[in-house]
């Protein structure tokens, strides 16, 4: 009794420790082949508490989707640990995984590729209810109709196939499906990127409302920094497989520390033609790092406007504090150390 009490208050719902996902590759022909490894995710750690939303942002290709896929074991982590309620899921049998699969749902980034083209919408949204034996027959149909309405899809479309929907309609099918089994955690990978801002607002309000009522948690991956700011309690900024800044949402937006975060925030387009024509973004020059190269120092160093010698040789780790940046120059917790060696 006491144990479970402890669990639900102190242990984070999701805890990721030093997660690595490397994709080995061999390219080319028999005689002219290159071997190597893509370090898609290269040692990241974070927690998500009950009722919390962690936003995850970063450059295209930096490993956000791979992180989410590794959490639900769609790709096997190369190393590291993923725990749900303190229980490690590595090496779990399929049977042991089943309840966990219900509790952790994912909304996939590509609304076109992630829906089974041969199933009707009713079938797609109802499938998890079948898999987890949650509702049958008429109840299931009613539940599917309720979910469709919830995400703003006309229930008359129940028997349509995915290709008969627009991009944004398909995205909402994916959201309805994830909500069907009343999960504890939803990994949302660009869940509103195909929606106009009004429907986007409806969906965000829905997610936040469910969070308030049911204590849901979200990992929220998005490129739209204004939306992340609104929905996320904390935000992690990724760069080439690592988290380079982690902070409470308001702190990050008010005062980004990492030079990459700064550049990112400066590039947010503003919906006002007068301001847009006058604004300057920080343009990064220098070599863009490649995920198949091992960088002993900071992967951002070559593009970084404030780098010092140490950045090229030593890797800055994210210090364990509330607003943390992995930067030798900008993170007070690290600057002392770099002063000693420089």
């Amino acid at each position: 009794m006491n144990d479970t009490q402890m669990n639900s208050t102190d242990t984070p719902l999701l805890s990721v420790r030093d997660l690595k996902v490397h994709f080995p590759f061999r390219r080319g022909s028999l005689f002219n082949s290159q071997k190597g490894v893509i370090r898609a995710v290269d040692g990241i750690s974070f927690d998500i508490a009950r009722g919390e939303t962690l936003g995850l942002v970063g450059e295209s290709g930096c490993g956000k989707s791979t992180t989410a896929r590794a959490i639900i074991n769609l790709v096997s982590p190369t190393s590291g640990d993923v725990r749900v309620d303190g229980v490690s899921i590595a090496g779990m049998s399929d049977a042991a995984m089943l309840p966990y699969r219900r509790r952790v749902q994912m909304v996939f980034q590509d609304p076109f590729a992630s829906l089974n083209p041969r199933m009707t919408v009713g079938g797609i949204i109802g499938e998890p209810l079948v898999v987890h034996s949650l509702a049958r027959g008429r109840d299931r149909k009613l539940e599917v109709l309720r979910l469709m309405e919830l995400v703003g899809l006309n229930p008359r479309f129940l028997n349509r196939y995915p290709h008969e929907f627009s991009g944004g309609q398909r995205q909402r099918i994916g959201i309805a499906r994830a909500l069907a089994v009343q999960p504890d955690l939803i990994l949302c990978d660009e869940p509103v990127s195909a929606l106009d801002v009004s429907i986007q607002a409806q969906i965000i309000n829905l997610l936040m409302d469910l969070q308030q009522k049911l204590g849901l948690s979200y990992l929220f991956i998005a490129h739209d920094l204004a939306i992340v700011r609104h929905i996320a309690t904390r935000v992690g900024v990724m760069y080439l497989g690592r988290i380079v800044e982690l902070a409470k949402s308001e702190d990050l937006y008010a005062g980004p520390k990492h030079p990459y975060t700064e550049a990112l925030l400066s590039a947010v387009p503003v919906p006002d033609p007068e301001i847009a024509s006058k604004r300057q973004r920080i343009v990064l020059s220098g070599e863009v790092p490649s995920p198949d190269v091992y960088y002993p120092g900071c992967a951002f160093a070559d593009r970084c406007p404030v780098k010092i010698d140490r950045c090229i040789t030593d890797r800055p780790e994210l210090p364990p504090k509330n607003h943390a940046a992995a930067c030798w120059v900008r993170e007070e917790a690290l600057t002392a150390k770099s002063a000693q060696t420089n």
């Binding site: 450059e59 990127s193 195909a194 490129h223 920094l225 990112l264 590039a267 387009p269 990064l284």
Partner: peptide, 13 residues
Amino acid sequence: DEPTTALDVTIQA
């Protein structure tokens, strides 16, 4: 048609 939905704002720019 929605060419930059999967791009971060720096690459989008």
